[in-house]
């Protein structure tokens, strides 16, 4: 498998489109004949992250890198940032709006579920600037 790169733009607040990037990337992974169990781990983590950008940020981008050994995803938004990452990682902690909860999310489980599905997770955030979530799944 050669190295491939994909980029997706994610619109803030648009729950109709939330998941479009994850859906597209899933189709790519299927075409590459990646193990279905591994695909599921990747796209569940990616989808959680995509929903987070839609629900909590002013918008952002997703950068997907595929190489023969791993899939690396970078989810980057333009703010507002996470004030306390340790708190955000706690199961049940959520700052989600009523609208987000109506969509079936916002229970404070997203980041933890991302962590459980990947081999590497790193979250960097600066208030007023934005958040960068990097995750890797080994193939």
């Amino acid at each position: 498998m050669k190295k491939l790169f994909f980029e997706y733009s994610v619109e803030a607040g648009n729950f109709t489109k939330a998941g479009d990037a994850s859906s597209n990337f899933k189709k790519v992974l299927k075409q590459l004949n990646v193990d279905p169990q591994v695909i599921k781990r990747i796209v569940v983590a990616l989808y959680e992250g995509e929903v987070n950008i839609v629900a909590h940020s002013v918008g952002g981008n997703i950068f997907c890198n595929i190489d023969p050994k791993s899939v690396n995803l970078i989810l980057k938004d333009d703010g507002p940032g996470i004030p306390d990452i340790n708190k955000a990682m706690q199961v049940g902690f959520s700052t989600a709006s009523a609208k987000v909860r109506e969509m079936g999310f916002g229970a404070g489980m997203g980041l933890v579920n991302m962590k459980n599905n990947v081999d590497f997770l790193k979250i960097e955030s600066e208030m007023g600037k934005g958040t960068k979530v990097e995750l890797t799944v080994n193939l």
Binding site: F15, T16, A18, G19, S22, S23, K26, P36, K40, V43, V44, Y47, V51, E102, M103, G104, F105
Partner: peptide, 15 residues
Amino acid sequence: GLSNIQTIRTAEMSD
């Protein structure tokens, strides 16, 4: 009982 686009997206991601 949740009928919205994300219900189907969730099903898609979870196979």
